[in-house]
Amino acid sequence: MKVIRASLTAAVLTLSLSLPAAAAELTPVDQAKAAPMSGTVLATASGQKKALDDFKGKVVLVDFWASWCGPCRQSFPWMNQMQTTYQAQGLEVVAINLDEEPELAQDFLQQIPADFTVLLDNKALLPEAFGVMGMPSSYLIDRQGRIRAEHIGFHTNKVNDYEDSIKALLVE
């Protein structure tokens, strides 16, 4: 009984120390790292070949996703909306699919169409370098190719923060 109480107290303490920091903060330019493997060429869902470097000079929202991931489904309509709203100001949404079988990505896109670039990384070349810790994971890259924000998962209660970060980078 005592042991259990002690471990729960420990749990509460650890918990209060590990609360996530506030979102919507951009990494300062001098601390930001360049997006890795930006020269790696991947097939797009529509059959072209593209690398992240092809979007240089734009603000790029890189989103790692997979067909089996529940929250990824929820993020697609929002990413469509971002692409439509901010494309003219220089935003590109680039969703990198990590399914081992590209057909699964195509099935998903049939159900939930994407109005943005979808790269197929079925050999998982990029996620390790980006340090992907959950699905989906997204990285906001500024016009100079530096990673300025990242978030794990898609949380509907945080979309305003995500959007604020995009807006801030677009006017930088």
Partner: peptide, 11 residues
Amino acid sequence: VKPWQRDILAQ
């Protein structure tokens, strides 16, 4: 596994 390798475990 890596986070992107959970396709089977997610079923």
